[in-house]
Design a protein around this nucleic acid. Structure first.
Lengths: 161, 161
DNA sequence: TGAGGGTACTTGAGTAGGCAACCAGAGTAG
DNA sequence: CTACTCTGGTTGCCTACTCAAGTACCCTCA
């Protein structure tokens, strides 16, 4: 019984404090959107959302390469998560390893030409999908507001505590 | 270079259309918050976020029971996801099966007394955690706005297309 | 120079959850 | 009653990820 009776199909979890409502909303929104995008991306381009995000970051990075640590911060995966994700991308030849002259510990992940091509391809339909989903429901200023609000939350790179 | 230089540690993915920014924000916010809550919830009460949500819904439901289908809509898991999640909860005796007289196909998930107790327990600290995280960053009206905005997204129960 | 501690990454083991294929009961339609 | 379809649910197989432990390297500081 807020401003507007929940427009949702089900009552989500009534009577909760507003913080919890927001959290549940985030959870549901993420679950729904994620599933949808993942499915599309996977079906059309054989990439998961995270694969895609990683490629985007590499593509954008200087020299098309990033240290694994930096990647893991950017996409919020653990180090091991990144290792395995990159394993997959390497097998598909979308990414290759490169070593660092200055520090033998680091292995760069470097996007390949195949990777760039695949990304360009996927970007087209994925970004399109994202834009549609969001544009259908939000005005420009609402998008800005949403982004700003969401932006306040994250930044727990790996282990906040 | 928007209204306010990205307050984030890294530039996330600059130059994207606003819809994509919002989407990336959602992804990151979810990843960060989820990891944190899941860890706490798991450490303190041996529950995942989804376990918790399921218990909440059961607790709130009429007779403490719901059909699996309905549960899966509420927490946005697939049918199989729900089955396995409930397997776990049943093993811990937090939930039990109950059959439906009117329709032999359905098996209710019914919260047990142990389940209610565990939930009450977990709720305390979890809700507290959620409230803190959100209250730290949002005013009351911002919370409402955020919830409303997020609420527009979901509702792809299983297979929208 | 060599011991201690931090950092980059990998690996082993385990969990969550998706998809596809399946079964069983429920509702029709003939 | 049989046949067909729809719906609720479970199962097999597989992927993505996490955590914890381990390896290799860097960087002190004595």
């Amino acid at each position: 019984m807020s401003t507007q009776a929940t427009p949702i199909g089900q009552e989500s979890t009534p009577g909760q404090p507003p913080e919890v409502d927001a959290w549940v909303g985030l959870l549901r929104a993420h679950a729904a959107a994620t599933r949808r995008f993942n499915r599309d991306l996977l079906a059309l381009h054989g990439l998961t959302i995270n694969d895609f995000e990683v490629l985007v970051h590499l593509d954008h990075a200087d020299g098309g390469r990033l240290r694994r640590v930096d990647l893991s911060e950017r996409v919020l995966l653990t180090a091991s998560g990144i290792t395995r994700l990159l394993d997959g991308l390497e097998r598909c030849d979308l990414v290759r390893k490169a070593s660092c002259a200055a520090d033998a510990r680091v292995t760069y992940a470097e996007i390949t030409e195949t990777g760039r091509a695949r990304l360009a391809d996927a970007r087209l339909s994925h970004v399109q999908g994202v834009r549609e989903l969001f544009a259908e429901r939000y005005s420009g200023s609402e998008l800005v507001a949403l982004t700003e609000l969401l932006g306040r939350l994250p930044q727990a790179p790996a282990c906040p505590g």
